[in-house]
């Protein structure tokens, strides 16, 4: 199939970027979106032009490396709850014009083309996204039973892949969904309760410092999250935060 690709090209963090148009006729509906970019890059390399840089690794929807803003949607249009690497070219038609951009957020500066710097996510985690337990000090796993429903809920929060689509989807570039997923996972488990109060405060503080915006409850993040992380997490985080403050 033939596509008109309008791809954001930016040499490095300091350079000014712009859309460049590529008429590409070697796409196939059997390709994944990233395989289509691979094919485009092969062409560009052979023409001795700089290929399009993008992050990817597992190509099976679990590492969170990939993340491209395609036709106005993080991870692309079409099927709900998939990552860019799982996006199929079947979602596009012959003759389509496709806009391909990096995540746009102050806290995620562009590194090159479609690659952004997401270290802000690590920084938020470093502020408190852990349970302080040393190797070798753990009791037997059955010493503390955990209600199945709670464990399952914690799992549902824990499956966030740290891709940043929630931030890219949000008009305020808020990281609330990501942060609240981590806060929730630990808040739901007895092991995580001990540091819960401090954790929610330090992580939220760091999030604000790093330039992520406020949450205005539009729900765009939940709608675009490839792992269907629920807004319930944000409500829980707000509760935790409030509770920590009044204590």
């Amino acid at each position: 199939m033939k596509l008109t690709l309008k791809i954001w090209r930016q040499k490095n963090a300091d350079a000014k970027g712009k859309f460049i148009t590529y008429d590409f006729d070697a796409a196939s509906p059997d390709m994944s979106f990233l395989e289509m970019l691979d094919a485009l890059n092969t062409k560009l390399i052979k023409e001795r032009t700089d290929p399009v840089a993008f992050d990817h690794d597992c190509r099976e929807g679990i590492c969170g490396s990939c993340g491209i803003y395609i036709n106005g949607h993080p991870h692309g249009p079409g099927k709900k709850a998939i990552t860019t690497c799982h996006l199929s070219m079947r979602e596009f038609k012959d003759g389509d014009t496709v806009y391909v951009e990096p995540w746009r957020a102050k806290a995620f500066p562009v590194v090159k083309d479609l690659i952004v710097d997401r270290t802000a996510f690590d920084k938020i985690q470093i502020a408190g996204g852990f349970i302080s337990t040393n190797v070798g000090s753990a009791p037997d796993s059955h010493a503390i039973p955990v209600e199945k429903s709670k464990a399952d809920e914690a799992f549902d929060s824990a499956i966030c892949i740290g891709c940043g689509a929630c931030v890219a989807a949000c008009k305020n570039a808020s990281a609330m969904l990501f942060v609240s997923a981590k806060i929730s996972q630990f808040a739901l488990l007895p092991q995580g309760r001990i540091e819960a109060k401090e954790r929610v405060q330090t992580m939220v503080k760091k999030m604000d410092e790093l330039g992520f915006g406020n949450c205005s409850n539009t729900g765009a993040c939940e709608a675009e999250c490839p792992k269907e992380i629920s807004l319930v997490n944000i409500a829980r985080m707000n509760r935790e935060f409030y509770w920590a403050k009044i204590q």
Partner: peptide
């Protein structure tokens, strides 16, 4: 396994 559980890894229960 004990270490993972203590770190909050949500294994199936």
């Amino acid at each position: 396994i004990d270490h993972f559980t203590a770190m909050g890894v949500p294994f199936a229960r």
